[in-house]
Protein backbone atom coordinates (compact mmCIF):
# COMPACT_ATOMS: atom_id res chain seq x y z
CA UNK A 1 0.00 0.00 0.00
CA UNK A 2 2.69 2.44 1.06
CA UNK A 3 4.65 1.78 -2.09
CA UNK A 4 1.60 2.68 -4.14
CA UNK A 5 1.34 5.94 -2.22
CA UNK A 6 4.98 6.58 -3.13
CA UNK A 7 4.44 5.96 -6.82
CA UNK A 8 1.42 8.23 -6.80
CA UNK A 9 3.31 11.03 -5.07
CA UNK A 10 6.22 10.56 -7.46
CA UNK A 11 3.82 10.75 -10.36
CA UNK A 12 2.39 14.02 -9.01
CA UNK A 13 5.90 15.42 -8.55
CA UNK A 14 6.98 14.58 -12.12
CA UNK A 15 3.78 15.95 -13.65
CA UNK A 16 3.99 19.18 -11.63
CA UNK A 17 7.66 19.66 -12.45
CA UNK A 18 7.06 19.10 -16.14
CA UNK A 19 4.39 21.75 -16.01
CA UNK A 20 6.75 24.14 -14.16
CA UNK A 21 9.26 24.12 -16.95
CA UNK A 22 6.72 24.41 -19.73
CA UNK A 23 4.53 27.25 -18.46
CA UNK A 24 4.84 30.65 -20.09
CA UNK A 25 3.28 32.53 -17.22
CA UNK A 26 5.65 32.76 -14.29
CA UNK A 27 2.91 32.76 -11.68
CA UNK A 28 1.42 29.57 -13.04
CA UNK A 29 4.82 27.97 -13.07
CA UNK A 30 5.32 29.03 -9.48
CA UNK A 31 2.07 27.39 -8.39
CA UNK A 32 3.05 24.13 -10.04
CA UNK A 33 6.47 24.39 -8.42
CA UNK A 34 4.77 24.58 -5.02
CA UNK A 35 2.79 21.47 -5.87
CA UNK A 36 5.97 19.74 -6.93
CA UNK A 37 7.64 20.66 -3.65
CA UNK A 38 4.63 19.46 -1.68
CA UNK A 39 4.77 16.14 -3.51
CA UNK A 40 8.45 15.79 -2.73
CA UNK A 41 7.71 16.62 0.88
CA UNK A 42 5.18 13.84 0.90
CA UNK A 43 7.80 11.45 -0.40
CA UNK A 44 10.06 12.53 2.49
CA UNK A 45 7.24 11.73 4.84
CA UNK A 46 6.89 8.29 3.33
CA UNK A 47 10.63 7.72 3.72
CA UNK A 48 10.32 8.47 7.43
CA UNK A 49 12.08 11.84 7.31
CA UNK A 50 9.37 13.78 9.11
CA UNK A 51 11.59 16.71 10.04
CA UNK A 52 12.80 17.12 6.47
CA UNK A 53 9.24 16.92 5.19
CA UNK A 54 8.22 19.74 7.51
CA UNK A 55 11.15 21.87 6.50
CA UNK A 56 10.34 21.21 2.84
CA UNK A 57 6.85 22.53 3.28
CA UNK A 58 7.65 25.42 5.62
CA UNK A 59 10.92 26.71 4.20
CA UNK A 60 10.71 25.70 0.55
CA UNK A 61 7.08 25.79 -0.33
CA UNK A 62 6.46 28.55 2.19
CA UNK A 63 9.30 31.02 2.51
CA UNK A 64 11.32 30.57 -0.66
CA UNK A 65 8.34 30.44 -2.97
CA UNK A 66 6.85 33.52 -1.33
CA UNK A 67 10.12 35.25 -2.06
CA UNK A 68 9.70 34.32 -5.72
CA UNK A 69 6.19 35.64 -5.65
CA UNK A 70 7.33 38.94 -4.17
CA UNK A 71 9.91 39.40 -6.85
CA UNK A 72 7.43 38.57 -9.58
CA UNK A 73 5.07 41.14 -8.23
CA UNK A 74 7.84 43.72 -7.90
CA UNK A 75 8.90 43.19 -11.48
CA UNK A 76 5.29 43.63 -12.51
CA UNK A 77 5.53 40.99 -15.16
CA UNK A 78 1.91 41.67 -15.96
CA UNK A 79 1.96 45.34 -16.73
CA UNK A 80 -1.63 45.93 -15.92
CA UNK A 81 -1.66 44.23 -12.54
CA UNK A 82 -5.41 44.35 -12.19
CA UNK A 83 -6.03 42.52 -15.46
CA UNK A 84 -3.48 39.94 -14.42
CA UNK A 85 -5.24 39.50 -11.07
CA UNK A 86 -8.49 38.95 -12.87
CA UNK A 87 -6.83 36.41 -15.15
CA UNK A 88 -5.47 34.54 -12.15
CA UNK A 89 -8.89 34.33 -10.59
CA UNK A 90 -10.31 32.48 -13.58
CA UNK A 91 -11.26 29.08 -12.26
CA UNK A 92 -9.97 26.98 -15.18
CA UNK A 93 -6.44 27.94 -14.30
CA UNK A 94 -6.83 26.36 -10.93
CA UNK A 95 -8.08 23.01 -12.09
CA UNK A 96 -4.64 21.49 -12.61
CA UNK A 97 -2.98 22.55 -9.33
CA UNK A 98 -6.12 21.83 -7.41
CA UNK A 99 -6.36 18.33 -8.82
CA UNK A 100 -2.75 17.49 -8.04
CA UNK A 101 -3.08 18.91 -4.53
CA UNK A 102 -6.21 16.89 -4.11
CA UNK A 103 -4.36 13.73 -4.94
CA UNK A 104 -1.71 14.58 -2.36
CA UNK A 105 -4.38 15.43 0.20
CA UNK A 106 -5.99 12.07 -0.41
CA UNK A 107 -2.77 10.29 0.14
CA UNK A 108 -2.21 12.22 3.35
CA UNK A 109 -5.70 11.24 4.45
CA UNK A 110 -4.90 7.59 3.93
CA UNK A 111 -1.81 7.98 6.09
CA UNK A 112 -3.68 9.99 8.65
CA UNK A 113 -6.43 7.44 8.97
CA UNK A 114 -3.85 4.79 9.63
CA UNK A 115 -4.66 2.65 6.62
CA UNK A 116 -1.08 2.68 5.81
CA UNK A 117 2.16 3.41 7.66
CA UNK A 118 5.42 5.09 6.71
CA UNK A 119 8.44 2.89 7.10
CA UNK A 120 8.99 3.07 10.83
CA UNK A 121 12.06 0.90 10.77
CA UNK A 122 13.95 3.54 8.90
CA UNK A 123 12.47 6.58 10.51
CA UNK A 124 15.02 9.17 11.58
CA UNK A 125 13.52 11.67 13.96
CA UNK A 126 14.31 15.30 14.67
CA UNK A 127 16.22 14.45 17.85
CA UNK A 128 18.80 12.37 16.01
CA UNK A 129 19.17 15.07 13.38
CA UNK A 130 19.63 17.75 16.04
CA UNK A 131 22.28 15.75 17.92
CA UNK A 132 24.23 15.14 14.71
CA UNK A 133 23.83 18.74 13.61
CA UNK A 134 25.25 20.27 16.78
CA UNK A 135 27.78 17.49 17.26
CA UNK A 136 29.91 16.23 14.42
CA UNK A 137 28.44 18.69 11.91
CA UNK A 138 28.97 21.78 14.01
CA UNK A 139 31.47 23.21 11.54
CA UNK A 140 29.01 22.72 8.67
CA UNK A 141 26.42 24.67 10.64
CA UNK A 142 28.90 27.49 11.06
CA UNK A 143 29.66 27.43 7.36
CA UNK A 144 25.96 27.50 6.55
CA UNK A 145 25.51 30.51 8.80
CA UNK A 146 28.33 32.25 6.99
CA UNK A 147 26.71 31.41 3.70
CA UNK A 148 23.41 32.84 4.85
CA UNK A 149 25.13 35.99 6.06
CA UNK A 150 26.84 36.39 2.70
CA UNK A 151 23.51 35.80 0.96
CA UNK A 152 21.90 38.40 3.18
CA UNK A 153 24.52 41.03 2.51
CA UNK A 154 24.56 40.17 -1.20
CA UNK A 155 20.82 40.36 -1.54
CA UNK A 156 20.67 43.65 0.35
CA UNK A 157 23.40 45.14 -1.79
CA UNK A 158 22.04 43.86 -5.08
CA UNK A 159 18.51 45.00 -4.54
CA UNK A 160 19.60 48.60 -4.08
CA UNK A 161 18.26 50.06 -7.28
CA UNK A 162 20.32 53.17 -7.78
CA UNK A 163 19.54 55.13 -10.88
CA UNK A 164 21.63 54.34 -13.88
CA UNK A 165 23.78 57.25 -14.90
CA UNK A 166 21.93 59.04 -17.65
CA UNK A 167 18.74 57.07 -17.14
Amino acid sequence: MTILLFYLAAFVAVIATSLVITRTNAVHALIYLIVSLLATGFVFLLLGAYFAALLEVIVYAGAVMVLFLFVLMMLGLGRDGEGRERELLQPHLWYGPAFLCGVLLGEWGILFLGWSQPFPLHAVDAKQVGISLLGPYFLAVELASMLLLAGLVGAYHLTELQRRPGA
Partner: peptide, 18 residues
Amino acid sequence: GQIFFILILTLAAAEVGV
Protein backbone atom coordinates in the same frame (compact mmCIF):
# COMPACT_ATOMS: atom_id res chain seq x y z
CA GLY B 1 21.01 12.53 4.80
CA GLN B 2 18.69 14.97 6.50
CA ILE B 3 21.57 17.13 7.64
CA PHE B 4 22.73 17.47 4.06
CA PHE B 5 19.20 18.26 3.05
CA ILE B 6 19.21 21.08 5.59
CA LEU B 7 22.49 22.36 4.23
CA ILE B 8 21.06 22.28 0.71
CA LEU B 9 18.09 24.19 2.01
CA THR B 10 20.38 26.83 3.42
CA LEU B 11 22.26 27.01 0.16
CA ALA B 12 19.01 27.32 -1.80
CA ALA B 13 17.78 30.09 0.46
CA ALA B 14 20.98 32.08 0.05
CA GLU B 15 21.02 31.39 -3.67
CA VAL B 16 17.47 32.57 -4.12
CA GLY B 17 18.19 35.72 -2.15
CA VAL B 18 21.15 36.63 -4.30
